[in-house]
Design a protein around this nucleic acid. Sequence first.
DNA 1: TTCATTCATCGTATAAAAACGATTTAAACA
DNA 2: TGTTTAAATCGTTTTTATACGATGAATGAA
Lengths: 110, 110
Amino acid sequence: MAQHKKEAFGTKEQNLATFAKALSHPARIAILSQLAKRNECICGELVEVLPLAQSTVSQHLKELKIAGLIDGTIDGPRSCYCINWKAFEKFYNDFSSLFTKLKEANARCC
Amino acid sequence: MAQHKKEAFGTKEQNLATFAKALSHPARIAILSQLAKRNECICGELVEVLPLAQSTVSQHLKELKIAGLIDGTIDGPRSCYCINWKAFEKFYNDFSSLFTKLKEANARCC
DNA sequence: TTCATTCATCGTATAAAAACGATTTAAACA
DNA sequence: TGTTTAAATCGTTTTTATACGATGAATGAA
């Protein structure tokens, strides 16, 4: 009875929602901030900094990767992650467009 | 075993995550777009436009309201909703700051 | 080759989200 | 007062997310 109906909406809305969902957990915001702060972005360093188990951090990294916001490369026994700037910028621009559209309409709201 | 640990993160990260979560469903993006498009923002009009049951739309409206992104006023037997511009702008600015911060760090990523 | 390190994945448990129908509430109107 | 209309809430089901420990795979070092 609770089948999701996300497909019933437009592509633009779905893409924006996917982007927002990737950012919808403080752990993933923290991960992005850490990736931005460091030259090296090793999974283990994130585990040290975050109040979560290693497996949980790995799971969040996977979600960010699936969303396309980060890239991961294997570096020996370690994994190095970094922000996928191109994807992130695309999503950000789409979101900014929505924001601008909403803003313009603001004046005549009830 | 799966108690949420969102409280273990910073306030800034939590607030951003809450904002993103409110936008993390295409129905809620569509609702915001509709609110921006119309002079009147009656719940029933949204139900007509969206591919969802009335109770489900009401639920999404409630979430947007709890997140602070919209305001609702009772208009006779109807409910009139509009975007809470101030809150929306605050969140948007916070998000833009994060984006800028990430962007500056981009050059020295692995 | 063996062992330690690092991370991903699996299995599982709990919590939250999404969706709907049915019911309730509240206002407008006859 | 009773009836209609509109929307919120309730109860329920299904799906997804969050979190962890345990296991597995792959690399690097002994």
